[in-house]
Amino acid sequence: MSSAPFRLLLVEDELADALLFQDMLSEQDQDITVHHVQNGQEALAYLCEPGHPPRPHLIVLDLNMPVMNGHEFLTRIKALPAVRSIPVLVLSTSEHPGDIQRAYEGQVSGYVVKPGSYPEYMHVLETIRAYWRGLVRLPSLEEVVQGRAGF
C-alpha cells in the first residue's frame, strides 16, 4: 500500500451517506483526504476552481442527485481535458441495468452498488481502498499537465 496522501472527491447528496463513507474510510486509512460535495454541479465547480484545488486521485460518484446528477456530471467531466483522466467510481443504490450501461458509456472506471449492511459496506470500502491505493497506478499530475497521460 502506498503511504503517500491520497485525495478523493466524494459526490454524494445524502449527508448521512457521505458521513458514513468518510467515517468508515478513515477507520481504514488515515492518509485519505475526502472532499465532499453534494452534486455534480458542485463537483465541477470544485474541479475547475480558479487557483486549482488539489487534484483528486479518484472521484466517487453517486448517480441520483439533485441539480446535476451523476450521468450529467460524467458527460461534462469527460469533455474537459484537464480533468477527464481522473478515474470515476460510481457508488450507487441503483442496480438498474440501464444506469450501469449508461455509466460505463460515460467512461466510469467502475460501478459498485451500495451494500445494505455495515459489514458489507466496510468490506466494499476496504476493497476500493486496497485497489485504488495499492494495486493500480495512476498518472501523476505532472504527466497529466504535460499531456503524457494518454488522452
Rank of each mutant, 00 (worst) to 15 (best):
A79Q: 06
A79F: 04
L80Y: 08
L80A: 11
A82M: 07
A82C: 10
A82Y: 05
V83Q: 06
V83G: 05
V83C: 05
V83E: 06
R84L: 15
S85G: 10
S85N: 13
S85C: 08
P87I: 14
V88W: 07
L89R: 10
L89T: 12
L89V: 09
L89Y: 05
V90Q: 02
V90Y: 05
V90S: 01
V90A: 11
L91E: 02
L91T: 05
T93F: 03
T93G: 07
T93S: 13
S94A: 05
H96C: 02
H96I: 00
H96Y: 02
H96T: 04
H96V: 04
P97Q: 05
P97S: 03
G98A: 14
G98Y: 05
G98W: 04
D99T: 02
D99Q: 08
D99V: 02
I100D: 00
Q101V: 08
Q101N: 08
A103G: 06
Y104T: 03
Y104I: 02
E105P: 05
G106H: 06
G106M: 04
G106W: 01
Q107H: 15
Q107P: 03
Q107M: 14
V108H: 01
V108N: 03
S109C: 15
S109L: 14
S109N: 14
G110Y: 01
G110K: 04
Y111P: 03
V113H: 08
V113D: 03
V113L: 03
V113P: 03
K114C: 10
K114M: 09
P115D: 07
P115E: 03
P115C: 06
P115R: 08
G116K: 15
S117V: 11
S117P: 04
Y118D: 14
Y118T: 13
P119C: 14
P119D: 13
E120M: 12
Y121N: 14
Y121V: 07
Y121W: 07
H123G: 13
H123K: 15
V124H: 11
V124Y: 13
L125H: 02
L125Q: 03
E126C: 09
E126I: 09
E126N: 15
E126Y: 15
T127Y: 11
T127A: 13
T127Q: 12
I128F: 05
I128M: 04
I128K: 04
R129H: 12
R129E: 07
A130N: 08
A130E: 11
